[in-house]
Simulated assay, not measured.
Amino acid sequence: MEYGRKGVELLKEIVHHDVDSLSAYNEDLVRTVITEVKEHNAQTIRITQQYESADSQVVSSDAWSDNLDAAAAVVVHIQCAIRNKKLLLAYMLQRVERLKNIRWSQKALPTSTAINCSPQELEFYKGYDRLLSRYMSKDNGIGLDLTLDIRPPKANNVLVKVLESQGDMMFSFGQASLMRGTLHLLPVEEAEPLIREGAVKMVHAGNGY
Rank of each mutant, 00 (worst) to 15 (best):
165 S>Y: 08
203 V>Y: 01
37 V>T: 11
187 P>V: 01
149 D>R: 06
72 A>C: 08
136 M>W: 00
8 V>R: 14
128 Y>C: 05
156 N>C: 02
78 I>T: 10
55 D>G: 08
122 L>K: 15
67 N>Y: 04
195 I>R: 14
5 R>Y: 11
198 G>Q: 10
43 Q>V: 09
134 R>P: 00
199 A>V: 12
175 Q>E: 09
10 L>R: 09
189 E>L: 04
3 Y>I: 13
140 N>F: 10
24 A>P: 08
180 R>Q: 15
136 M>R: 02
12 K>D: 13
134 R>S: 07
116 N>D: 05
59 V>A: 06
92 M>V: 11
171 F>R: 04
95 R>W: 01
127 G>R: 11
196 R>L: 12
192 E>K: 11
139 D>N: 10
82 I>K: 07
86 K>L: 13
126 K>F: 06
90 A>C: 04
159 L>R: 10
102 I>Q: 00
167 G>T: 10
90 A>E: 10
150 I>Q: 14
28 D>E: 14
100 K>V: 09
176 A>C: 04
48 T>K: 11
137 S>F: 04
75 V>S: 13
18 D>C: 04
127 G>W: 05
76 V>C: 05
28 D>R: 14
112 S>W: 05
196 R>G: 07
194 L>R: 01
142 I>A: 02
203 V>P: 00
59 V>W: 05
156 N>A: 13
166 Q>P: 02
119 P>L: 01
193 P>W: 06
171 F>E: 06
173 F>K: 11
94 Q>C: 10
60 S>G: 06
161 K>D: 02
90 A>S: 14
115 I>F: 01
167 G>I: 05
209 Y>Q: 12
88 L>G: 03
126 K>N: 14
118 S>A: 15
203 V>T: 01
111 T>R: 15
20 D>A: 11
47 I>Q: 02
61 S>A: 14
117 C>M: 10
104 W>Y: 13
203 V>E: 03
64 W>Q: 03
91 Y>A: 07
96 V>G: 00
71 A>K: 10
83 R>E: 09
43 Q>G: 07
51 Y>P: 00
12 K>E: 15
130 R>I: 11
46 R>M: 07
189 E>F: 02
23 S>I: 09
124 F>E: 02
74 V>F: 07
84 N>Q: 05
96 V>S: 07
121 E>W: 06
31 R>A: 15
187 P>E: 02
43 Q>S: 14
57 Q>S: 12
27 E>I: 15
101 N>T: 13
145 D>H: 07
12 K>N: 12
6 K>V: 07
107 K>F: 08
179 M>I: 15
39 E>F: 04
171 F>D: 01
110 P>T: 03
12 K>A: 11
186 L>H: 06
